[in-house]
Every structure is written in C-alpha cells, then in structure tokens.
Amino acid sequence: MRYAMLIDTLKCVGCSDCVVACQTENDVPMGYCRDWITEVVNGQYPNLDLELKSERCNHCDNAPCVRCCPTGASHKSTGGIILVTANECIGCGACIESCPYDARYQHPEGYVDKCTFCHHRLEKGQLPACVSVCPTNCMYFGDLDNPNSEVSQLLNNRKHKTLAPEAGTKPQVYYLL
C-alpha cells in the first residue's frame, strides 16, 4: 500500500476549510497548523497567473526527517505515512531542520507534531479530515499501489508536480496542474 494525496490546483480556491478541519479534528494547539494555503502569483499585471494550493507534510518516500531522528520517534508507518511517536521524541529538532517544506513544528508540550494523513480516520475507513471537507472537492486520497484507484488514474491522466523534487525527498502529495 502506498498512500498518496492529490490536490487539484485548478479547483482549489484557497478557502482554508482544510486548515480549520485539521485543527479541529486533530486538536492542533492555538496558533499552530498542520496544513496551510499558499498562493503563487506569476507574471506581470495585467497578465497574471495565480496558483492556490493547500500544503502539508508530503509523507516523503525518501524522508530526511526519518533518517535524522536519533530515537526512531519519526518513522514510516503503514502505507508510507510518516508519523512521530510523541513519547519517543526528545524534541531535539533535527527533523524540523531536515524538512525542506517546514512541515513540522514543536508542539507546546515539547514533542514534534505534523500532518498524519489522519491515520486514525483511515483506520475507520474514513478520508483525512481535510479531504472530506473540501467544498470544491479538489483533494483526492488513495492507494498508488492499486492501479485502478482514483489517485492512480488521475496521476496517469493529468499533468502534475510535487514540491521541491530537487530536494530528493520523493513527496507523496501531488499537485494536479
């Protein structure tokens, strides 16, 4: 199994529903977030090109955060989800330094926290909170090892990109263009 998330940049309107849904679902402390919205504006007025997208941990296949963790708290779980075990984490910050996407933060309680692809919801057969609330249905979630899954089909048929592929992390959050 290889979980992946696809986000359609042509459909995303940057409403931040996914951000709020995540904060509520995962009890993210005030002032923190596990996902966020970026807007990229290209070109010169009046010929502008705007790209909106929701970003989060990319659950990298080649995850530097897992490699540099001295205790094994950061690890790869079923389906390639990258998780942090809070009571193994010493809060050394190495993983935060290692993430090219700045997707991690120090929880006020001291351990390191980030997006989990809502693995607790996946276990119950539900979709991640962000995916399930998106009002434009711009997010897709599924198994890339299954060639018939919606995500595999979409990646076959649509142009897509990942963030900073030059960092060598093999991100598993794909952006449809």
Binding site: G14, S16, V19, G31, Y32, C33, W36, I37, T38, E39, V40, V41, N42, G43, Q44, G93, I96, E97, D102, R104, Y105, Q106
Partner: peptide
Amino acid sequence: MEELFTSGRNIPNIDPYLQIWH
C-alpha cells in the same frame, strides 16, 4: 516575476524563518 504568499501560517519558531536550534 513570481510572488509567493502563505496565508494563515505563523507558527512559533518556524515562521517566518526557522529558530529551532539556539
């Protein structure tokens, strides 16, 4: 010209730049 904005993100010690190791 490219401009990048990140909205709704101002995480302590992470934004606008990393201050994890002191």
